[in-house]
Every structure is written in structure tokens, then in C-alpha cells.
């Protein structure tokens, strides 16, 4: 048994030499996790071809896990949300935002309500919402937590826990949609692209749920890369990754984000997200 254990340790601790030159990326699990691997495997294949290195996609269970993997240099590139990207770049000096989706430059959050609340489509925030139940998405989500909380505080002048009788965190956007659709929560806030995707796919009964308000625009999702990739994969590697992302125009690949294309992005584009994060006390 002791020999077995020693062997176990040796195997566990052995550095995986094979993966030394593999370029690994991840993505925040913002919607259907069962499809993450399928969605991003194609992207990995595409990048592998463009960059001529082994590219691996690794799925993670939470936004924080994506940030941690990036910070720990276990992944070098990530498809982050606005806020998780800010968190990641705070923790990894030298890292930079490479590209965002065309839609991400002017992203919005939808506030949705169950039909039983009596709230009408597009009627906006109102005192009728007080005392209802409300769900965010993931705790670390920009469109599902950060921005909706910011606007709720701005309108009601108090933390959401005081406005609503119950505040939950569904975990991801598609779950927010289904929880509000089932009436588990009366209200919810989510990423508008996920909502429109789910509606188009017929997963949501729009007689049961309606969009009552949408936030003003803000920047959201982006690709962020570590600053030390050039050392590891050769000069100009980060720029080549950026070019490969910008060149991605296969509708099948883009549909998995879902975005119509990618445009250049910079760290400064997300200054507003950083400020909101600090204002809400989520960033030191």
C-alpha cells in the first residue's frame, strides 16, 4: 500500500512535459455548461491552425475559477466578462484585453419579470417591484450582477437586499431565464444576447416572461491574454493571437459566443467597469 501511495504522489507531482508548449485558454461558464466543450473545441481547432501551436480549451465551473486559472498561468488566454476581465488584469500585471465582440462595445442587461407580477414590457423600474423576489446571475458576472446591481442601487437608493424580499444568484444567464420563467423568482437580470438566443431557440415561453427594462450601454465580454506569452511562445505571439481572433469570421465559430464578429479592445475600454466594481465594493 505504501508503495502504491508513493507512486501515486510521484505521478501526481510529475510535471506534465507534454503540455509545456500547449497554449491553453478558457471561458467563463456564462451559459449552458454542457455545450461549453463543444462550443469552444471548434475555437481551439481554429486557433491551433492559425497560430501553429497546440491549443487546448479547458472548461471551468465558475467565473472565479476562470480568473484563478488565468492568474495561475494555467491558462494564457480567456474569454472573460467585463468584470472578470478587470479582475484578471488587476491580478496579472502586463496582461491585456485583445478583442471584444462587436456587440460588447454596447452591451446591455435585460431586467425580466414573470407574468404573475403584472409588470408590463418596457415599463422600467417601479416601486411595484419592492418586496418581490429577484435573481442575479453569477456573483462575478458583469451583465448578470455588476451592472444590474449598480442600476438598482442608483434607482432605489439602497442595496438590492433591502429592495427585494429575496435576492438570489442563479449561477448563469440561462438559469436566470429559466428560474424567472418557472416563477421561482419574480424578477431577474441577465445578459441580453443569452436572452435573445434562448428566445430564438424556443427555450422560453415569452407569454410567461417579459423584458421590463434594459440598462444603458456598457462594455462587456473580451478576450484577455497574459503579458508573458511572447516570452513563452515567441515574439509577437500576443499580436498574432489578436489577429487570429479578429479574423475569425466563420459564422459557426462566432455563433458559439454568440457574436457577429470581433473588434480590437484595450484595457482602457473597461475603466468604467472597474469604477463600478470599486463603487460596489467588489474590487479593492
Amino acid at each position: 500500500m505504501i508503495r502504491g501511495l508513493m507512486l501515486a504522489l510521484a505521478v501526481l507531482l510529475a510535471p506534465s512535459l507534454a503540455s509545456a508548449e500547449t497554449f491553453v485558454f478558457t471561458a467563463i461558464p456564462d451559459e449552458d455548461e454542457t455545450r461549453l466543450q463543444q462550443r469552444f473545441q471548434k475555437v481551439a481547432d481554429y486557433l491551433s491552425e492559425e497560430l501553429e501551436v497546440d491549443v487546448h480549451f479547458v472548461p471551468v465551473k465558475s467565473y472565479a475559477a476562470a480568473v484563478t486559472a488565468f492568474r495561475n498561468n494555467q491558462v494564457q488566454l480567456a474569454w472573460f466578462g467585463g468584470f472578470s476581465g478587470v479582475q484578471a488584469r488587476e491580478h496579472v500585471p502586463g496582461s491585456r484585453a485583445l478583442a471584444q465582440g462587436v456587440e460588447d462595445a454596447e452591451f446591455v442587461t435585460y431586467f425580466i419579470a414573470h407574468e404573475s407580477t403584472g409588470l408590463k414590457a418596457g415599463e422600467g423600474f417601479s416601486d411595484a417591484m419592492r418586496g418581490m423576489t429577484f435573481t442575479f446571475g453569477s456573483k462575478g458576472s458583469t451583465s448578470g450582477r455588476l451592472m444590474p446591481e449598480y442600476y438598482l442601487r442608483e434607482h432605489f437608493g439602497e442595496p438590492p437586499e433591502d429592495t427585494f424580499s429575496r435576492v438570489g444568484f442563479s449561477g448563469n444567464h440561462s438559469r436566470t431565464a429559466s428560474l424567472v420563467a418557472s416563477g421561482a423568482y419574480q424578477l431577474g437580470a441577465l445578459n441580453y444576447t443569452v436572452w435573445e438566443n434562448e428566445v430564438a431557440a424556443g427555450n422560453i415561453d415569452t407569454d410567461q416572461v417579459t423584458v421590463v427594462w434594459e440598462t444603458p450601454q456598457y462594455p462587456d465580454y473580451q478576450w484577455t491574454i497574459r503579458g508573458d506569452v511572447d516570452e513563452r511562445f515567441g515574439d509577437g505571439f500576443a499580436d498574432r493571437v489578436q489577429q487570429a481572433l479578429l479574423d475569425m469570421n466563420d459564422p459557426e465559430l462566432l455563433a458559439s459566443f454568440p457574436r457577429s464578429g470581433f473588434i480590437p479592445a484595450s484595457n482602457e475600454d473597461y475603466a468604467v467597469i472597474r469604477e463600478v466594481g470599486q463603487e460596489l465594493g467588489l474590487l479593492d
Partner: peptide, 22 residues
């Protein structure tokens, strides 16, 4: 049992490499 204990470490999967500076 010894067989299971010997085999199990090899079946854990590889995961991502550890970076010790972390």
C-alpha cells in the same frame, strides 16, 4: 484493494500543470 490503489493514481486524469510559484 492493492490493485485498485495502484491503478487509481493513473486514472485521475492530468488536469492542468501546477505552477509552483502560485
Amino acid at each position: 484493494l492493492p490493485f485498485y490503489l495502484l491503478a487509481a493514481p493513473f486514472l485521475l486524469g492530468s488536469g492542468l500543470p501546477i505552477v509552483w510559484s502560485n
